[in-house]
Write a protein that binds this DNA or RNA. Structure first.
Length: 200
DNA sequence: TCGTCGATCTACT
DNA sequence: GTAGATCGACGAG
């Protein structure tokens, strides 16, 4: 059921970002399992991508996780507040990553609502990368964690969307990246209520 | 060492 | 619609 390590080793990070739509992401934190299926992703294409932290081969204590072999997590803090969850792909030395922007929650809904301080399931509960991480209990403690572990993993449950349901567009919040901000590296389900920002 | 800015979200007006 | 939260990385000095 878990996607095998080989799935993450491809050098085509954009293709993996597209393929991850409909895959199920789970975490098991403190013995509680929560998860759902992915409906919004963004690809970050290594050292030539101005929007990526690893642009220009920049290696810091924060970004070194991205330079490891694919199939692990990359979790970092943004705006001092939000934890962002990424999946690292490709081989060691090639810092590709995929940001998970939104999921449709399916498992552990009561725990997810509690983590998000909500008493009903509103659509924005897992909309946006900061919200996804918080809903699933993801923090920097599970940075560089293997996706073959029993803490966090991705499953294929046979859910599939055809081309008409999937949209591609420019990534969100990367205006500083110049031309690279225009690349169609974001993939999402057209019109899905859990998808953030423009979702048409 | 300091100041600026970021792969953002929420609460309030 | 927009201000505020709040910390790590980076460039200037």
């Amino acid at each position: 059921m878990k996607l095998p390590e080989a799935y993450y080793l491809s050098s085509d990070v954009v293709a993996i970002a597209r393929d991850l739509l409909g895959k199920y992401l789970f975490t098991c934190i403190d013995g509680v399992t929560t998860g759902g299926y992915i409906v919004d992703t963004e690809a970050y294409n290594g050292i030539i991508d101005k929007a990526s932290h690893s642009y220009g081969n920049r290696i810091t204590p924060r970004t070194k996780t991205m330079f490891e072999q694919g199939g692990i997590t990359y979790v970092y803090l943004c705006y001092g507040i939000h934890e962002m969850f990424n999946i690292v792909t490709s081989v060691a030395g090639q810092p590709h990553a995929i940001l998970i922007r939104a999921i449709v929650p399916t498992d552990g809904l009561d725990v997810i609502m509690h983590r998000r301080n909500m008493d009903t399931l509103k659509h924005h509960i897992t909309r946006g990368p900061g919200s996804v991480a918080k809903a699933l209990g993801i923090s920097r403690k599970i940075n560089a964690c293997s996706l073959q572990s029993d803490t966090i993993w991705v499953e294929d449950r046979g859910l599939h969307f055809d081309a008409a349901e999937v949209a591609a567009g420019p990534r969100i919040g990367v205006d500083y990246a110049g031309d690279d901000a225009l690349l169609p590296y974001r993939f999402y389900l057209r019109g899905n209520a859990f998808v953030s920002k423009p979702n048409k």
